[in-house]
């Protein structure tokens, strides 16, 4: 090995600030921030803007910390899958030990800070969310059962409940329903992605539903979960966080989502491959809009309520 080669190696190992930030999964963090904010603003109790801002920030940091711990544990499969090869650890920019240290430090930090800024219950709920995502989903379910994403999806569904807990200090039927909406949305959203990611999960040895039970079963599951999701999503319109805006949004979006799921269910693998999974990709795109607009409608109801326009 020459001096030049040693220098080149060192150069690729030096991480920038952005590489450490990428450990926190910023795109997932944006969903966490948005849904937690909606949970906080939809709650009946008003929160001081400074406390609300700090709480959302600490929830985001907690979500990011669990992302870093997920990358630490899954570094081996991230290196195999095309979708995740560019992440900081497989790309050789950050070491596993660094990711572990950052993830653990930020986890403890975010929970304590949220408990101090808002209340102890919110801090404990954030701690449970991190535990659920890292230990229950990442370490246990992900490599063990094809139901990994169904049960593990709960981790991503907790943020609106935490936001609600920041304002109220507890749990209520509305916050549980907001949790259920994201929980039921995760399987069809993720399975649609799996259908067009082809062999990624198989190569990594992750027992996703389409790997263990085939694509036909996955298509059936997408339809069933989409129908169950529609019941939850439309039912929410008649609770304290719903109203005419939410009901209209839910009816339109669930109609479109069910049509998309039926279209995926009716397709054979040959037809899907012929058009490069066009329907599956558009269903996945719609699923992102679906969740954003549902929570956006809840936010609209909460924002307009003081003017006599939101809610029933």
């Amino acid at each position: 090995m020459t001096d030049a080669s040693i220098n080149t190696h060192t150069e690729t190992q030096e991480a920038g600030f952005g590489d450490y930030f990428a450990l926190l999964k910023p795109r997932v963090m944006s969903l966490v921030v948005f849904t937690a904010l909606v949970g906080l603003l939809a709650a009946p109790n008003a929160v001081h803007p400074m406390i609300a801002f700090a709480s959302i920030l600490f929830i985001a940091v907690g979500g990011g910390a669990s992302g870093a711990l997920n990358m630490w544990w899954d570094a081996d499969i991230d290196a195999v899958m095309k979708r995740t090869q560019g992440r900081p650890i497989p790309a050789g920019k950050v070491t596993r030990d660094e990711a572990f240290a950052i993830g653990l430090t930020l986890s403890v930090f975010s929970c304590i800070m949220l408990a101090l800024a808002a209340n102890i219950f919110a801090g404990l709920l954030l701690a449970f969310t991190i535990f659920f995502y890292v230990v229950i989903y990442t370490m246990w379910l992900k490599r063990w059962t094809p139901q990994n994403i169904v049960i593990g999806g709960a981790a991503g569904a907790f943020p609106p409940m935490i936001g609600w807990a920041v304002a109220t200090g507890g749990v209520s039927i509305e916050s549980v329903l907001m949790f259920t909406l994201t929980f039921m949305w995760t399987p069809p959203h993720f399975w649609a992605l799996c259908l067009f990611m082809k062999s990624d999960y198989k190569d990594a040895g992750v027992p996703m539903l389409h790997v263990t039970h085939g694509r036909r079963v996955t298509r059936n599951h997408i339809l069933v979960y989409t129908l169950l999701l529609a019941v939850v999503a439309i039912g929410m319109a008649f609770t304290g966080v719903g109203g005419p805006i939410y009901l209209t949004t839910a009816l339109v979006l669930n109609g479109l989502f069910i049509l998309g799921a039926i279209s995926i269910w009716r397709r054979t693998e040959e037809v899907a491959e012929a058009d490069n999974y066009k329907r599956e990709k558009s269903f996945f795109g719609l699923s992102l809009l679906y969740l954003f607009l549902h929570f956006g409608a809840i936010l609209a109801e909460a924002t307009l309520a003081p003017y006599g326009l939101g809610g029933w």
């Binding site: 991480a15 920038g16 700090a54």
Partner: peptide, 24 residues
């Protein structure tokens, strides 16, 4: 440059944290 960016990022994060604790 990368190390400088990292240090500036860390400094801004710490300053932001101090501001949040002060505000709270």
């Amino acid at each position: 440059h990368r190390r400088f960016g990292r240090n500036v990022g860390l400094a801004l994060t710490l300053v932001g944290f101090i501001a949040i604790v002060f505000g709270l």
